[in-house]
């Protein structure tokens, strides 16, 4: 794939007026503004830099904060990571069903309400500005290898029909409504956040998509 730094610049221009301009989205979990900057690369992003960005992206997608709700067709959210001890399916026999939001038995919203308010209470059911739910079944990340997740993420058939620009925009949109990615970096309640910052994750997505969304198999 060819680098697509031009189109990223265009997106940046479209959204920000000028690349490198900071912009803000509502109050964050700690009451502060979330400032995200689309740092459009000035030069082409190399394959190596793109792969390095992917590796960091994978540490995010494979982190329990993210992967626990990116699970397979069994439709079970997972409990894994430092907050949970042994890895196991979400307690209470929770199954989100094919709807991925619990219509079939118990709505996720029974406990995980939709709210942009801070997640301050330890061990409470977390909430975000997006209705709580599992990611679409195609976005199965839990326990998956870097190669598998990368192949899924760059495949419009399995990533919600998104191209590279759309993937970047997805992150910005998430920040606007205080959805899952935003929460993952600031989960509150004593939970371990996803590695890095949301800005770093955005930088990596910009770089990775600018590099043509290379996957580890492409580097061999």
């Amino acid at each position: 794939m060819k680098p697509r730094s031009i189109s990223i610049f265009a997106i940046g221009f479209l959204l920000l007026g000028a690349a490198g301009t900071a912009f803000s989205h509502g109050p964050g979990d700690d009451g502060s503004q979330i400032d995200l900057v689309v740092n459009t690369p000035e030069e082409d992003v190399t394959l190596e830099a793109g792969l390095a960005a992917w590796d960091r992206i994978y540490t995010v997608t494979s982190h329990p904060r993210c992967s626990n709700c990116h699970t397979d067709e069994r439709n079970e959210p997972m409990w894994s990571g430092p907050s949970y001890g042994k890895t196991r399916p979400h307690g209470m026999n929770i199954n989100a069903g094919d709807s991925r939001i619990g219509v079939e038995t118990i709505f996720c919203s029974t406990c995980h309400v939709q709210s942009t308010a801070p997640n301050t209470v330890r061990h409470a059911a977390p909430h975000t500005g997006h209705p709580w739910m599992l990611a679409p079944v195609e976005f199965n990340w839990f326990g998956q290898t870097s190669e598998t997740v990368c192949a899924q993420m760059r495949d419009p058939e399995r990533n919600g029909g998104r191209n590279g620009d759309d993937l970047v925009e997805h992150i910005i949109h998430d920040a606007e409504i205080k959805a899952f990615i935003t929460w993952g970096f600031n989960p509150g309640g004593g939970r371990e956040p996803a590695p890095g910052t949301m800005q770093e994750h955005l930088d990596d997505m910009v770089a990775w998509t600018a590099a043509g969304m290379p996957c580890p198999v492409d580097g061999d």
Partner: peptide, 10 residues
């Protein structure tokens, strides 16, 4: 009409 935990909704 939907069940919600009243401890978790403001």
């Amino acid at each position: 009409g939907l069940a919600v935990r009243s401890c978790s909704i403001t």
